[in-house]
Amino acid sequence: MYSVRQWSVTNSKHLGKFYNLFELALFKLHPVFKAIGYDRLEKPVRVIEHAVKGFLFDCQMCGQCALSSTGLSCPMNCPKNLRNGPCGGVRLDGHCEVKPEMRCVWVEAWRGSALMEDSNAIRQVQVAVDFSLKGSSSWLRVSRENAAAKALLDQAGEV
């Protein structure tokens, strides 16, 4: 919902902090997820993730969540799907050129970003979207990838 989406950006500082803790929890749960099986978990987690993030951010389930780098303003709501916005067509009142009734997703992103702990994350260039991931769970991916990254680090430490 549009008003909730804007509320989330306004409260990006606290929501961002909460997400950092949540991401840590996902990482800790990796052994549990692994035991149950990521494939088996994909469908139920996807449903919950879509419900929560759909409500808070109008999440489009791109499967490669960038919210923590975009001030909690979902870039997939940009009519041009820009991952590194805003484009040059932003109206002087900060609204979208394609959907004049909507505030530019990326004007909102810079607003939300300034409030967050890691306000520089938005300055990183985001790579092209992988459309083959659309519809899959970002949460499970984060858990899996963080665990894999840690395993690599541990391995490097042992050598």
Binding site: P79, K80, N81, L82, R83, N84, G85, C87, G89, E97, V98, V125, Q126, V127, A128, V129, F131
Partner: peptide, 28 residues
């Protein structure tokens, strides 16, 4: 360039692609 939206053109019914944005296109 990212490009203008299709709504301003002479084929507003066209499918907007936007597979990339100007930034990822530069990188590529």
């Amino acid at each position: 360039l990212s490009g203008d939206g299709v709504q301003v053109g002479d084929h507003p019914e066209a499918k907007p692609v936007f597979d990339l944005d100007s930034m990822s296109l530069l990188e590529i």
